[in-house]
Every structure is written in structure tokens, then in C-alpha cells.
Amino acid sequence: MSRKPVQFTLNGVEKAAFVDDGQNLLDVLRRGVGDLTPKYGCGQGTCGACTVIVDGEPRLACLTLAELVNGRRVETTGGLAQGAALHPLQDAFMRNFAAQCGYCTPGMLMAAKALLDRNPRPTREDVIEAIGGNICRCTGYEPIITAVLEAAGGPARQGTGRAP
């Protein structure tokens, strides 16, 4: 086994770490550079709790080989709030009770941010698709969908904003 130096930006801040061969990005974020906001859920890409954004694309940190983020831009929930000011998504999640136990929330927020970064006025169906890889066992998803749409300033025309 060899250790390789890796450099990337984490929420706009330059980071450097040594990674082991085969080590996943989630492990490096949590234990290597101390960002505990992405969560370890299943380690299999099934639950979405570790969703982060790499170069603008949503990625599952547990399935991403850490050395492959060398030179890339990584965003996590840790970078959403600006000081005491919450990100509009965080604010909308709070107001709509979209977090209960909270374990899925960082992944949900990043999946939602990846959507809104590309599509600022999604339909309800777009939101459902965007968080389709993220499992929540508490909320039944409705408050989360509502929160994402609210953060986007309401659903785009095709969506009804209500349960089907």
C-alpha cells in the first residue's frame, strides 16, 4: 500500500491530505480533513447520506476513489451556511420540518443543491428525481420536497406542488 498526496478545494478552501490506495472520499473528508458533515450510511451507494458535489456534479463520496478528486472542487453541507446565515435550502428545510433525525439531511441538501445549481426553478417531478437516490426513514419525503421547492421560490409550472 502506498500513500498518495491529494489536493483539492473543499468548500472553496484548499486542502491537502495523504490518501491510501483504495480509500474512499467519504473517509478522507471525515477522517482526513475533518469535515464531518457528509454522513456514512451504507457504504454501498444505496442511501445517499454521503452525497457531495464534485466539480458541480452530485457524487456519492463512499463510492468515489479519493485520489480521483485531486485538483477538483468538492462541496459539502459544511460550506452551505455563511457564518450565521443559513443557506436558503437549510432555511427552507428548517421551516418545513424537513429534518427529523437529521442523518439523511446533509445528503438531501447536497442532492438538492446540485439540482438547483443547474435548474433554479425545478418542477416537483424534478425534485423527486433529484433526491431519488437519497433515503429518508423519518419524514416520508413530503416536507423535503416542499422545502426544496420553497427554496427555489415555488415549483415551476408543470408541478402541482401537491401530492399526486
Binding site: 451507494g45 445517499g48 452525497t51 456534479e57 452530485p58 457524487r59 456519492l60 463510492l63 468515489t64 442532492a111 446540485a114 439540482l115 428525481e129 433529484a130 433526491i131 431519488g132 437516490g133 437519497n134
Partner: peptide, 9 residues
């Protein structure tokens, strides 16, 4: 195939 985070990989 999976959700968006799987499809980007």
C-alpha cells in the same frame, strides 16, 4: 440507473 449521484459516475 440509480439517482443522479450514481449517474454522474
Amino acid at each position: 440507473i440509480g439517482g443522479p449521484a450514481v449517474r454522474s459516475a
